[in-house]
Structures are given as structure tokens and as C-alpha cells.
């Protein structure tokens, strides 16, 4: 690790930490949302679908601002979080994780939903005739068969979180050690005179990290496919 400066190390660590939490916390909701969109039939489904996909098409700054309004200490949700649970999301890594989670959520849901839709319902029916109730069918048949999609969605969301910038900087600003992730550190360096060399190094670190993530995802997907197809 001596190759990296303390500043780079801090940004890298923070990025991995924030993205890890963002993905871990949003995964159960992602599976739930994908399930509802893939299998549910209810009025307002198109609306929910649109809402989930909104961050994909909105300017990230707008998402960040919306989060600030909603989750700030005086916001509707943020006020409650602070008053009742004593949790503050403003200007700390938790807020950065929330911003990353919201921005990467549509990608995660999309991948899981696609793979849920490709699960053969006939196999689920077969499990039911063998005595498995809906919950057991879900956990022993649907989830394992959806796993490649869940994995793909998770890694995609993780990669998207690593590159999150606009919503984060708008929502939780640029605080070293708290919210200054790799992209934000990179941006900061480009704003100061003589920071080009350091910026290039951060850029290369980002490229390497993204590349590793994609390789890991390919590898894991291949393993899973092999397991499923015997």
C-alpha cells in the first residue's frame, strides 16, 4: 500500500466503505422492488416503476437536492430520523451511502427483475405440488434461480456507487474522511493549481477499481451458470 499516498488511500477506503454499505442496505429492498415489479399486479405499478427508475434519468444534482430537502434535519424524513432515532445523514458517510444507494438502485432492480422474469414459473408450480408453500418456493427455488441476476445487479450497483458524484456532492458536500470519495477527491484535485499529476493517479486508481469489479462479476457469473446448468 506504500504505492498510494495517505490521501489516496483515504479516498479509496471511503469509496469502498460507502459503496459497500449502499449496496448491502439496498439489496433487500432491491429484491423486493424487483419482485413486486416482476410479479405484482396492482394499480399504480407503472408509477412505482417510474419512481424507481427516476434517478437513472434525472440530473444527479437534482437527486442530491431532493435528498437534501427530504433527508435534511428539517426535512420531512430527515427531521423524524434525527428527532426520533438520533440519526443524521447530513455531511457524513451515511449520507454519501444513501445518495449512492438511491442512484444505483434502478440498475440493481433492473438486473434482478430481468432474471426474476426469466425464472420458469412451471418449476415453481412443480415445487408447490411437492408440498412447498409460497415462502419455501421463494427461498428454495426462486431465489437460487435468480442468483445470477442478483449478483449482476449487486455488482452493477456497486460499480455505479463507486462512480457516484453529483448527488453525493450536492447532498453531503465534500468533506475529507467523511464524504470525499474517489470521484470527489479527483474533482477537488482538478480545482487546485498543480493538482493534475495527483488527479491522474486517482483517475488510474478508479479505472483499476472499475476493471477489477467487472472481472470479478464475470467470474462469479460464470461460476453460477455452471452450478445451475450442471
Amino acid at each position: 500500500m506504500s504505492m498510494l499516498t495517505p490521501l489516496e488511500l483515504e479516498a479509496l477506503r471511503l469509496s469502498l466503505w460507502v459503496s459497500g454499505w449502499a449496496v448491502a442496505v439496498s439489496l433487500p429492498f432491491g429484491v423486493l422492488a424487483a419482485w413486486v415489479l416482476a410479479r405484482g399486479r396492482f394499480p399504480g405499478k407503472a408509477l412505482l416503476d417510474g419512481l424507481i427508475h427516476l434517478p437513472l434519468v434525472l440530473p444527479p444534482v437534482a437527486v442530491g437536492y431532493a435528498l437534501l430537502v427530504l433527508l435534511g434535519r428539517k426535512g420531512i424524513v430527515g427531521g423524524w430520523l434525527y428527532d426520533v432515532l438520533g440519526i443524521s445523514l447530513i455531511f457524513n458517510w451515511k449520507g454519501a451511502a444513501v445518495a449512492s444507494a438511491v442512484m444505483s438502485f434502478p440498475l440493481m432492480v433492473r438486473a434482478i427483475r430481468l432474471s426474476l422474469e426469466s425464472v420458469d414459473r412451471g418449476i415453481e408450480s412443480a415445487a408447490a405440488t411437492l408440498g412447498a408453500g409460497p415462502l419455501r418456493v421463494f427461498f428454495t427455488v426462486t431465489v437460487p434461480l435468480t442468483l445470477p441476476g442478483v449478483l449482476a445487479g449487486t455488482i452493477l450497483a456497486f460499480a455505479r456507487s463507486l462512480s457516484e458524484f453529483g448527488a453525493t456532492i450536492t447532498f453531503v458536500s465534500n468533506i475529507p474522511g467523511q464524504t470525499r470519495t474517489l470521484p470527489i477527491a479527483l474533482y477537488s484535485l482538478t480545482q487546485v493549481p498543480g493538482g493534475e499529476a495527483a488527479a491522474l493517479r486517482l483517475c488510474l486508481i478508479s479505472v483499476g477499481l472499475a476493471f477489477l469489479t467487472l472481472l470479478a462479476s464475470e467470474q462469479a457469473a460464470r461460476k453460477l451458470r455452471q452450478r445451475l446448468q450442471g
Partner: peptide, 11 residues
């Protein structure tokens, strides 16, 4: 129920 296409669990 034995289905025409067997419907075994692939995993």
C-alpha cells in the same frame, strides 16, 4: 404432478 417437460430443479 408429473409434467410433460419434467420441470426438475436445475440447481
Amino acid at each position: 404432478y408429473v409434467f410433460q417437460e419434467s420441470r426438475l430443479f436445475p440447481h
